[in-house]
Amino acid sequence: MSKDGPATARRVTADWARAYEGFSVWRPLRLLRRIGPVVQGITLDRTTSGDAYFPTAHIHALTREFPVVSLTLGQRLLSPSGVQEAVAFASHADLYIEASARLAEQSRLSLGDAPGVEQIVKELHAFAVAQQERGYPPAVFEMEDSVLVAAAYGDSELLPRGLRLAADLAEEWKVSRLPLSFPGKADWLAGLEEKAGSPSVLNDTIESQIAVHKLGGIHQVQ
């Protein structure tokens, strides 16, 4: 490990936790809070050299079995010129307050007052549409998350809206750009509807993921 080792990581994490009081320290350089079937996070993602970090806002849906807490909808801090900006550990004390304020300003989802599940689902929808419009790889997992989160949350309007959007986007997705594990459009949509129709199974998955990732102690938004 670089000279910016465990003690530095703990100190930096504690500073960012003070900047974002609604979040809990989950691990060194990781802050999280739970919003229903989703966790919202701030990750201080080390650079390749290890002497700096990228402040990154993100979410992770608990409605699928997954080995890590992902950086879905990840947004790294941007400089005024629009490039990703890292904070050097050596300059952290002088820069983190201003950096945390700018990250909050740039984040599509509020890092102050917690966003609602509806806002999170709509942001997943917006991301999936933008990916398609820009010719980027299909947002298969983000669409799955949007549908399953809405189902687990019990939102009777967002769920059918998400399923319709999934069907519309799937018609446009190019097979060559889809994940190798993609089962085909018809089977994917049928499987998604089946999962969305089993909220008790989704809730079991959520509880299992909370246990697997040791999330029981993080702040939970009511």
Rank of each mutant, 00 (worst) to 15 (best):
L178F: 04
Y96P: 02
F127A: 05
P183G: 11
S208W: 07
F23L: 05
L148G: 03
D187R: 11
S208A: 14
G216T: 14
P80K: 04
K174I: 13
E65C: 00
E171F: 00
A139L: 10
L165Q: 15
L169S: 07
A61Y: 04
H60Q: 00
Y136S: 15
S198K: 13
L111F: 11
W188G: 04
G191T: 06
A166F: 07
Q75C: 00
W16I: 05
Q84V: 13
Q222C: 02
L178I: 13
F141N: 12
S107P: 11
Y136V: 07
K174V: 10
G50Y: 12
G154R: 04
T43N: 09
P160G: 09
A57F: 03
Q132Y: 05
V221S: 01
E142T: 12
A166D: 04
R33I: 07
M1G: 15
L165F: 10
D51W: 01
E21N: 08
V212Q: 09
V149E: 00
P37I: 09
A88D: 05
L95R: 15
K122I: 04
Q84E: 15
Q132A: 14
G5Y: 06
G82H: 13
S100Y: 12
L77T: 07
K214R: 13
D4E: 11
A151Y: 03
L29K: 12
V38E: 06
L111Y: 12
L78M: 12
E193H: 11
H213L: 03
Q220E: 15
A99P: 07
R27N: 15
T48Q: 12
V83K: 04
P137A: 08
A61T: 02
K185Y: 00
D51S: 11
S110Y: 08
Q75W: 01
R102K: 15
T8R: 11
D168M: 09
T47Y: 01
A93P: 06
Q209S: 07
P183R: 10
A167H: 07
E194W: 02
D204L: 02
S176V: 09
N203T: 03
A52K: 05
L202F: 08
I42T: 03
H92F: 08
D145N: 15
N203K: 04
V129W: 08
P80D: 13
G154K: 05
E21V: 14
L124P: 03
S24T: 10
L192V: 06
A128M: 12
R177Q: 14
S79C: 14
D4P: 00
L95Y: 01
A104L: 09
L77H: 06
G74N: 08
A139Y: 06
V201K: 01
F182C: 05
Q132D: 13
